[in-house]
């Protein structure tokens, strides 16, 4: 499904966090949103599925304004994996994944709901822990459960906020491969990521956010040393080898604020 973000601006109690965001996302796109902490990645994702309402501008899903769409209908097309799940009450893994079927459940879960839930639990190898309390799992296991919950929603658009943050190498590749496969089937994936190399490897295009604005939007070619240095304020090396790009962070960028840092160093350590 197509997403069209039309000139949105979002503020939390008067503090503007997103400004002049414009972008069009097509069927089958795998979009990685990158940017420093606090640049507005999570906020942007929450604006796409209507959790937050931009004060200015409109988000269109399949050419329909989401403000005119019933929340429940919207939740049948868009699934969301939050960055952190603070305040999660103790619920079993099975019930958590089943919750993804909520938009389809009226009276009680149908056999189809149960089948989809169990299939996804199996697919993501959660079957050994499926009756455990989610709060008693490791961070990576929890994250996998939340991804399973989003998949159970059978959405056409998946919004994931740093889903790989707690995962080990194997699970990162498994989850990213699963997402890539979904994209090949026509799903749209928008994922906030900190790992630029992961973004380079999987994303069809990358959005760089800086202080609430789109700093750059495009394919691999926007991942340049110059852009990254401006975005993160650190020195990086980008290795290019035909189709293979790799980013290596080198160290602090020494500029005019060197003296300030030295003073900080003195007051805290020396």
């Amino acid at each position: 499904m197509k997403i069209n973000i039309n000139n949105i601006q979002f503020s939390y109690n008067g503090t503007t966090v997103l400004k002049d965001i414009n972008c069009k996302i097509n069927n089958g796109d795998f979009i990685a949103v990158v940017g420093p902490n606090g640049s507005g990645k999570s906020t942007l994702i929450k604006c796409i599925n209507g959790i937050l309402k931009p004060q200015i501008g409109t988000v269109y899903i399949a050419d329909k304004d989401i403000k005119q769409t019933h929340l429940r209908d919207l939740s049948k097309t868009i699934a969301y994996v939050p960055q952190n799940s603070n305040g999660q009450a103790p619920v079993s893994v099975f019930d958590t994944v089943l919750l993804g079927r909520k938009p389809y459940i009226n009276w009680k879960p149908s056999s189809v709901d149960i089948k989809i839930t169990t299939d996804i639990i199996n697919h993501l190898q959660l079957d050994d822990i499926f009756m455990k309390d989610i709060n008693k799992l490791s961070g990576g296991q929890q994250q996998t459960v939340y991804i399973a919950r989003a998949l159970a929603q059978q959405p056409e658009i998946l919004l994931l906020d740093e889903p790989t943050a707690n995962l080990d190498l194997k699970h990162i590749i498994e989850i990213m491969d699963t997402l890539k496969n979904l994209c090949n089937k026509g799903f749209t994936v928008v994922i906030a990521l900190h790992d630029i190399n992961l973004a380079l490897r999987y994303a069809s295009s990358i959005i760089m956010l800086k202080e609430g604005k789109i700093f750059a939007h495009g394919g691999k070619d926007i991942i340049t040393e110059e852009n990254l240095e401006k975005l993160y304020d650190i020195k990086v090396k980008v290795i290019r080898n035909n189709d293979f790009h790799h980013v290596i962070p080198l160290g602090k960028l020494y500029r005019e604020d060197k003296t300030k840092n030295n003073e900080l160093y003195k007051t805290t350590i020396g």
């Binding site: 019933h70 929340l71 429940r72 939050p82 305040g87 009450a89 919750l99 993804g100 909520k102």
Partner: peptide, 15 residues
């Protein structure tokens, strides 16, 4: 039941 997973998530499920 959906609220047990947090307000924002519940909103994303149409609550």
């Amino acid at each position: 039941k959906t609220l047990q997973s947090g307000d924002e998530y519940a909103k994303s499920l149409g609550v």
